[in-house]
Design a protein around this nucleic acid. Structure first.
Lengths: 226, 226
DNA sequence: TCAATTATTTATCAGATGATAAATAACAGC
DNA sequence: GCTGTTATTTATCATCTGATAAATAATTGA
């Protein structure tokens, strides 16, 4: 391939509806920025999209606007409320619930694009990570701690508020899963080939710690003092 | 402050020996690139160093050379061989050894600059992370697994090689500590204020998992078959 | 089939950015 | 104090890069 002639081949000029083209640009931008970071150049993005660079500016007034859009696409609305139900359904053992949740979460949220854009955003000083972590604590970690309480036969959060230590124990579960993808998509290190096995093994190891913490710091449920 | 007049104040021109100036530049570059990433501009770096931008090129032929130097400074030789002794000294309980190691490792290696440059390097596709992870496996994780074996009363690695699962369990300990600093220096989320407490709590939680894995998959030591 | 609309491209600008060359001034040795 | 050496700065280049304006061609509707 020669140094590149943008569209100058005999190919007929591609023309899409604004909605379609916007979709193509956003999807391309997600992949592109995930790969090279937000310092990636608009010309190279355009090249990958097989469009001219100024066309980007027809759809996004500035590069920053496109970046914001990428953030929105990747982080907003990727959280599925069903996931929370997976955690709180006491009909199945907690271990199975956690495994089920992380299977779903990993396959839908912890993708190549997500992990890398998340890290780029954090390094750029974006506050998205902070906000996402708050969401995670509220919708995942606190419910998990509550379920761990129940599994350990300890009193609920109404009787004894969830402690920092218990949250940390829940973070350990999460961090262990998360780190798998950091190694895979950021460090590009060989990882265990079978994700399902990895998840169940990890849950087994880390859930024990959380249960111990709860048992030791909260203790068994006592008959509710009147 | 006005838009900036580089050195144009009445201040006398600062003149250092090449060795000193190089040190200043490298140290400044570490801080600078850790903060803004390797896309940071040489002019801004020079500004922070209160030198002219071309002076950088007297010491480093290209920006890339400076970056390589930063990698070397931060990653090469920061590993202290004494650390390995901390892990293998069976005079003290394994729990205490791990806590001692991570206290030392965290304070000397897991700094702001280290964590961020490490992550920038990973995202840039640098192979430094891979190499570092290999170093970590050889010098930390395998020794840890060996000590866990001993603590669990299981046979040593000569009798039964360390399994992937055991390595993963050791990674869990490490990941939990590491994640603390990712949250602190990359996501800039509030973290537990007392690091020592965090480390000992984390070791307590995650070491249990590692011990269980070893007990369940390797079992108790049997008299060495003749 | 023809004209109006508009998605897309080509041409281009202005400022940024890595890098070089020439000028300047601090220091060392005599 | 004078002179040679060199650490440092000023001036500048060539290219890159985000962004804009004008030209072009695909599509739509009558």
């Amino acid at each position: 391939m020669a140094p590149m002639t943008k569209t100058a081949d005999g190919a007929k000029r591609q023309r899409f509806s604004p909605a379609e083209r916007e979709r193509l640009i956003v999807d391309g931008a997600i992949q592109f920025f995930a790969e090279v970071g937000f310092a990636g150049q608009t010309r190279e993005l355009a090249l990958r999209l097989s469009i001219s660079q100024p066309l980007l500016y027809r759809y996004f007034p500035t590069k920053q606007d496109l970046i914001e859009r990428v953030y929105d696409e990747v982080f907003i609305g990727r959280w599925k409320n069903e996931w929370e139900l997976l955690i709180t359904d006491r009909a199945t053992p907690l271990r199975e619930r956690l495994i089920g949740f992380y299977e779903a979460y990993a396959s839908e949220a912890l993708t190549y694009e997500w992990i890398r854009i998340y890290m780029f955003a954090g390094l750029s000083g974006e506050d998205i990570n902070k906000r996402y972590i708050e969401l995670l604590e509220q919708r995942l970690l606190i419910p998990v701690c509550t379920e761990v309480r129940a599994a350990a036969g300890a009193p609920g959060p109404d009787a004894v508020p969830i402690s920092e230590l218990e949250i940390e124990a829940a973070w350990n579960i999460h961090a262990a899963i998360f780190y798998y993808f950091v190694r895979k998509f950021i460090y590009r290190t060989p990882v265990a080939p079978d994700l399902s096995t990895y998840i169940s093994d990890t849950v087994d190891r880390t859930l024990d710690g959380a249960l111990s913490v709860t048992r030791e710091t909260v203790g068994k449920a006592k008959p509710r003092a009147a």
